[in-house]
Design a binder for these strands. Structure first.
Length: 255
DNA sequence: ATGGTGGATGGTCCA
């Protein structure tokens, strides 16, 4: 069983890359973020040709998430059950082969202290509430997506220079840690403690070539699923292509 | 020095 997450930064622009990647990697499920298109324009037929069913929750120009699956999806939900946060198309979930998959696009937050930063913290609180009310940590739950947070200093290319900035600030990390403490393990960190492993590199200043990145895309799992976790890796290949997404896919394999 | 890139948009906003 292979489950992946990938912020594609526009499914319209990245469609051919996404299709080629699915053909190569053959995941059972891929969770997409920043699809940036309305549901009426989601290119579901291209995925259907490969045997994948698409479930999407999008909007014009910004945000947008999708669940693409080879296997049947049950209990599909879009957005949170409660409305404690202004709506944005940032969350979709469904159960595949007994695994409750939560696909989220956590707000970027722009800069520490900004209005968008406060929105990010509130959104994290809403996510925690949603998980508490709709999931059980004793079951197989997988939380993945673009978290826009580097959990530890080893997930940042230059933590000293970047200390306390957006994606690394103490309040963001604490909010995320509270979600983790509900019952998740970072599937990637089960398999390696290496630093310098990143999933996002700024388009500017040759950041990818110089490996000036951040590990902000994650796959987290509850204990019963962590036991099944045989490997998790970041696939840097799509980031090397012409006109890439700024994010690389993260892939988790389960026995 | 305030850039540098990219996507959606149709002016700027967002990342």
């Amino acid at each position: 069983m292979i489950i992946a997450t990938w912020n594609v930064n526009s499914i319209t622009v990245r469609l051919d890359q996404a299709i080629a990647w699915l053909q190569n990697v053959q995941p059972d499920v891929v969770c997409l973020q920043e699809t940036k298109t309305i549901d009426e324009k989601f290119p579901e037929s291209r995925f259907a040709e490969l045997g994948y069913q698409s479930y999407f929750y999008g909007e014009k120009a910004y945000n947008g998430v999708a669940l693409i699956s080879k296997l049947p999806v049950e209990n599909l939900t879009r957005g949170f059950f409660h409305d404690s946060i202004p709506d944005a198309k940032r969350f979709i979930s469904g159960t595949v082969s007994g695994i409750q998959i939560l696909n989220c696009y956590i707000p970027n937050g722009q800069a520490v202290g900004s209005d968008k930063y406060l929105y990010k913290l509130n959104w994290l609180k809403a996510l925690k509430t949603h998980i508490e009310s709709s999931c059980k940590s004793t079951e197989q739950v997988l939380l993945c997506g673009d978290f826009n947070i580097a959990p530890e200093d080893i997930d940042v290319y230059d933590a000293a220079a970047y200390g306390g900035e957006i994606m690394c600030s103490a309040a963001e990390r604490q909010s995320l840690e509270e979600i983790r403490a509900w019952g998740f393990t970072d599937a990637f960190r089960k398999h390696t403690q290496e630093s310098g492993k990143f999933s996002w590199w700024d388009y500017r200043a040759g950041a990818f070539r110089r490996n000036l990145g951040f590990r902000i895309d994650h796959i987290w799992v509850t204990p019963s699923l962590a036991e099944r976790s045989t490997n998790t890796w970041i696939d840097k290949e799509p980031r090397k292509l012409e006109r890439p997404s700024d994010h690389a896919p993260v892939v988790a394999e389960f026995a």
